[in-house]
């Protein structure tokens, strides 16, 4: 069977089954379990209405439990046992082993570096672009172009940027933009940028900033437009200049949106994997936690340490996630 046909079949079946579930379960609820007739009609209608939300939520709950809640506990269990010793409970031995590895500390240190740079840079640039393009006639075109990287997968983006950082032997034409410029403006020989420790981290971060700036820009642009025009006019009458209006009137009014954008990007950063995997695979001191976990789990086949790394990532993400949800809900009110 051709793959297209397969895809169509799967989509039809999937959607059909979902619709069928809601329709059929609703039908059974209303007509078989609690029929709206007889002496108990009123009570039955109330009962059916009380049950209905749970009925409709059930598939989502089941899927979330199976694919999200269960793996958390399973990972926790895996991080506390040793598979090579017939699943014997080893306590925190896996964590201790992980902490003795310099690669883990390198990954943790790099993750914090990413955490400091990427959300700040993306949010700031997003805010700046949102503000600068707001009143331009071609602002929407500029925004569309800046938003476009959002549609590219992290791996695709990594491939594009790997070409930007590409190095060819000296004397041949440089196809990487960075080296082309570098050799043109200096007399130095081309540099293999991704192998320069410490700075190569920033070269990887640029890829994520490039992708996330569009996201930050779109959300913040909407927030800026939501600011009541009259408060800005009042500030103009009060004598505030453009910079003061931006920092004292506009920014404070979109604080909660900025926090949501910032924390959302932070969570993405903590989970960053594809970019490092595709560009350096953690070599030359660019390791990050998610790639470290992948390394341990699927390359070294060390389930214990791999799961321990996964738990560390989850513990780091959790507080930021909670803050994110709380801010987002506050903004909705």
């Amino acid at each position: 069977m051709s793959p297209i046909l397969q895809a169509v079949l799967v989509i039809t079946l999937g959607v059909g089954l979902s619709v069928g579930y809601f329709w059929l379960s609703n039908l059974i609820l209303d007509n078989v379990l609690f029929p709206a007739k007889g002496i108990n009609a009123g009570r039955n209608i109330n009962l059916a209405n009380a049950v209905r939300p749970w009925l409709f939520l059930f598939p989502a709950f089941a899927a979330m439990g199976l694919y999200l809640a269960y793996p958390v506990f399973e990972t926790l269990r895996l991080s506390l046992i040793d598979r090579d010793k017939a699943d014997a409970f080893v306590g925190l031995a896996n964590y201790r082993q992980m902490m003795d590895e310099p690669k883990f500390w390198e990954a943790l240190k790099n993750n914090f570096l990413w955490l400091l740079v990427v959300p700040a840079a993306s949010t700031l640039m997003g805010l700046l672009i949102a503000q600068l393009t707001d009143r331009l006639r071609w602002g929407n075109i500029a925004k569309a172009l800046i938003f476009m990287p959002m549609a590219i997968s992290f791996v695709g983006a990594s491939v594009i940027w790997k070409l930007v950082y590409d190095a060819r032997p000296e004397g041949t034409e440089q196809i990487g933009v960075l080296n082309a410029l570098y050799t043109f403006f200096t007399s130095n020989s081309p540099e293999v940028w991704l192998t320069v420790p410490f700075w190569n981290n920033f070269l990887l971060m640029i890829v994520l900033i490039w992708i996330q700036t569009g996201f930050a820009m779109v959300i913040l642009s909407a927030a800026l437009r939501g600011i009541p025009e009259e408060t800005i006019e009042a500030a103009v009458v009060d004598g505030a200049g453009p910079l003061r209006i931006f920092f004292r009137i506009k920014m404070p009014q979109i604080t909660s949106t900025i926090i949501v954008v910032w924390t959302t990007i932070t969570i993405t950063v903590l989970k960053v994997f594809d970019i490092v995997f595709a560009m350096t695979n953690g070599q030359w001191q660019t390791q990050v936690l998610a790639n470290y976990m992948f390394d341990k789990l699927f390359r070294a086949n060390d389930w214990g340490v791999g799961s321990a790394a996964a738990m560390v990532i989850m513990l780091l993400v959790l507080p930021i996630l909670i803050w994110n949800v709380v801010s987002a809900r506050r903004e909705l009110r």
């Binding site: 009541p228 009259e230 006019e233 103009v236 009458v237 009060d238 004292r248 404070p252």
Partner: peptide, 29 residues
């Protein structure tokens, strides 16, 4: 510019700065 004309304006929707207290609102200008 408006600020140099010696005018002050009261807007229909009040246009108070929502993140500033009453005192800060008045002190801004």
């Amino acid at each position: 510019p408006p600020s140099q004309r010696g005018i002050a304006m009261v807007f229909q929707s009040y246009a108070l700065y929502p993140h500033m207290t009453v005192r800060e609102n008045m002190a801004f200008a």
